[in-house]
Design a protein around this nucleic acid. Structure first.
Length: 260
DNA sequence: ATGCCGGGCGAAGCCCGA
């Protein structure tokens, strides 16, 4: 079971790249973020032609998440509990029906939180508390769970090109990283880091200042595995190739392989 | 301190991202 996460920064602008990558990488499940469109305008037909089912939690212009799966999806649930006034589309969850390979997945677009002095930062921290609550409830089921997405969290100094430059940023502040650790400490395994010792390996490069060419990136796209999923973890990689293509997203896909 | 780039929206220039 190959499960990927990818912030595509607009599904409509990214369709050629997304279709190419689906055909080349052949993931079973893809967790998309920042689709930037409502469900009615999601280009489902072209994706379905490649054998995927689509579950879309859309929003006009901003945010929006989706789950693509070659296996049937059930128990599809959109939105993150805990704040009835939150209408930003940042969370989608589903059960992937695949026999012994079955797994629960969530596509997560965690708020950026900048600028730190604005209301956006407390919104981010509260959203992380809500995610922690949901993640805790999912553990109680003792199912295999993969929480994948754009976490907008740089876990450690070595996950960015210049820690000093990010010191006061919402993606890197101690409070942000502490909440991310709280999430992990529930019992989740961050798939890429648990299989890799390398430092300065990234999943996002800004469009500006030649960040991609200089490899000035940050690692903020993560796959968090419950114990039952972590026991099945066989591989986890960051596929840099899509970031180097024309009309690229500023994020590149991260995928993991779970044994049956 | 701000723009840099790129997308949405909508038809110019602003909002937003990380």
């Amino acid at each position: 079971m190959k499960i990927a996460t990818w912030n595509v920064n607009s599904i409509k602008a990214r369709m050629p790249n997304v279709l190419d990558w689906l055909a080349e990488a052949t993931p079973d499940v893809v967790l998309l973020q920042e689709i930037k469109t409502v469900e009615e305008n999601f280009p489902a037909m072209e994706i379905e032609e490649l054998g995927y089912n689509c579950a879309v939690h859309g929003q006009k212009s901003y945010n929006g998440v989706a789950i693509l799966s070659k296996h049937p999806l059930s128990e599809v649930s959109m939105g993150l509990a805990g704040d009835k006034n939150d209408n930003q589309a940042r969370y989608a969850e589903a059960w992937v029906e695949a026999g012994d390979d079955s797994v629960r997945v969530a596509s997560i677009y965690l708020p950026n939180g900048n600028p730190v002095g604005s209301e956006k930062y407390p919104y981010k921290l509260k959203w992380m508390d809500r995610l922690t609550k949901r993640a805790s409830a999912l553990l109680a089921s003792e199912e295999p769970v993969v929480l994948g997405g754009d976490y907008n969290v740089i876990p450690a100094d070595t996950d960015c090109y210049d820690p000093a430059a990010w010191a006061n940023d919402a993606l890197f502040k101690p409070e942000t990283r502490a909440k991310f650790r709280t999430l992990l400490n529930l019992g989740y395994t961050e798939a890429w880091r648990t299989l890799h010792n390398e430092t300065h390996v990234y999943s996002f490069w800004d469009y500006q200042k030649g960040a991609w060419q200089k490899d000035n990136g940050i690692r903020i796209d993560h796959l968090l595995l419950s114990p039952k999923a972590a026991d099945r973890l066989a591989a986890c990689e960051i596929d840099r190739a899509p970031r180097g293509k024309t009309k690229a997203s500023d994020h590149t896909p991260v995928w993991c392989e779970l044994r049956a």
